[in-house]
Every structure is written in structure tokens, then in C-alpha cells.
Simulated scan of single mutants.
Amino acid sequence: MYSVIVVPPMCGSSEDQVRIAPGERLAFGRSGTDGGLTIDHAGVPRVAGEITAHRSFWLLSNLSEDQTYVVENPEGAGEHLKIAPGRMEAPVPFEFSRVVLPAAGDLLTFDVWAPRHAFRSADRRGLPGAATAPAFALDRTSRYFAVLAALCEPRLRGEPHAPLPAVEQLVERLRPVWPAVSRSSVYWNVDYLAVKLRLRPRPDTAEPGPRVNGKKESLVSLALRFDLVREDDLVVLAAPAGEVVR
């Protein structure tokens, strides 16, 4: 039973995919290897690397002399791993991965899927003792959450390095669910989020000092790193007719 699927560059159908069972290895590089993945490009080492399958994840070995490989999570809004030259059996936890190989000015990619991720129930009901306090207490029906979702939207839509929307763009994006939105109300909610998520102290406890820049970038970075906003949450930006975020 396979646990990892390797999707070669320019893969035309499922028949071209390579399925690997736990414990099996797949070499890749410019030179054809027995049953391996050939990447026909002059900038790819003859023996570039090796993939090893495990039950619910996989390992990547970088066999190049001087090239760092990158493993991207296409669903992770910029989440990635760097695999240094010579690094052996680096574990990759993503369910969907894109391996990026720098090659003589080009960036070549192929995908690796690990579809057998396992999860246990997170239900803690019935356990004795006090409940665990949430790490980030966010009200998904609030205006501040709609602002946060609008900030994160470009990067959640598959553009991990997309520039963040300007305040004017946020106002236009939020108007369908918040007709009275204004620049000042967006600024207020951004400031509130920065305090709520502990990116800056409350005004009554802040010490004098230089103004903190990059507030929106810090908010989006935190929200995406900890999955505070997911793609499913973008529905708050398209409320049904007659319904607005309170």
C-alpha cells in the first residue's frame, strides 16, 4: 500500500504519477536511475536527491553540492521548508508539497502528496479539571475578524507573496458586509487586533518609544502561521443578502 505520491513535472495523467510504499525510496536527478524520477535539465545534478516514504509523511535528502532546495506548502500561504545541500532525510510534514529546485536560472518544480495523514480527536469534553484557555480568542462574527480576513485574503487565495491590501482596498472589500465601513474604522480595528493578539501593548501600558511599523504585515504573518484565518473563513466577506457582520 502506497503512502506517498510523486507527481513529475508536466505530469499529464495519474498513470504518470509514482506511488511509493512506506520504506521505499525514489531517487531524482538529471541522469536516469532505475525506477527513479528523471528531470531533464542541464542545471539539475545527475543525482539530485532522494525521497523516502513513511506512513504519513516523507523524507527528502538533498544530494546536490551547493544548491538549497525548497519545499513549499501550496495550501500554507507561504509556508515552506529549506533543505540545505547535503542534508539527509529531512522530514516533510505537509500533506501537499511542491519541491522547488533552482537550476541554472530556472526554478523547476514537482509535487509530492502524502494523503495518509492521521488525526486523533481533539474532543476534551468529560475530562476532569478546568478547561484550557484558548491561545487566541477570536469572535468570527465580529468586525475585527472581517478586517483580519480581508487582510489575509490575497495570500489565502494562492498568492503567498501577494502585497497586502491598502486601507482603501479594505474599505471596498468590506463594504458588502459592513455598509458603514470607513478608513478610520478599519484603522481602529487593525489597532485593536494588534493589541488583542499581543503584537503591541495596550495604550495604557505602552512605554514611550518609536512608532511600530509593519502592523498589518505582522498581523497577517501571525494569523497565517497559526491558522487563525483559513480559506473557509473568507465567507465572512460575502455574507448573504440582508445580513451584515455586527
Results as ranks from 00 to 15, higher is better:
28 F>Q: 05
156 L>N: 06
182 S>I: 01
148 L>S: 06
62 N>C: 09
79 E>H: 03
200 R>D: 08
231 E>S: 14
132 T>I: 12
226 F>C: 07
32 G>Y: 01
135 A>I: 05
215 K>H: 03
212 V>S: 09
240 P>E: 12
219 L>Y: 12
34 D>V: 12
56 S>D: 15
58 W>G: 01
9 P>G: 12
145 F>W: 04
69 Y>T: 05
231 E>G: 09
36 G>W: 08
19 R>G: 11
49 G>R: 02
105 G>D: 10
43 G>V: 13
117 H>V: 04
153 E>C: 02
228 L>F: 08
240 P>D: 12
33 T>M: 13
149 A>K: 03
184 S>L: 11
225 R>M: 12
147 V>G: 02
233 D>L: 10
225 R>H: 14
42 A>G: 05
195 V>I: 15
242 G>V: 05
175 R>T: 14
61 S>C: 06
35 G>W: 06
7 V>I: 15
216 K>G: 03
202 R>N: 08
45 P>R: 04
35 G>S: 10
32 G>Q: 13
146 A>Y: 09
243 E>Q: 14
21 A>D: 15
228 L>I: 08
101 L>T: 04
121 S>C: 12
119 F>K: 02
54 H>K: 13
238 A>F: 01
189 N>F: 10
214 G>K: 03
210 P>G: 09
245 V>Y: 06
173 R>Y: 00
118 A>C: 05
17 Q>L: 06
91 P>C: 03
118 A>Y: 08
72 E>V: 08
14 S>W: 01
132 T>H: 08
119 F>Q: 10
49 G>F: 01
118 A>S: 13
174 L>M: 07
198 R>I: 00
72 E>D: 15
121 S>P: 00
95 E>N: 08
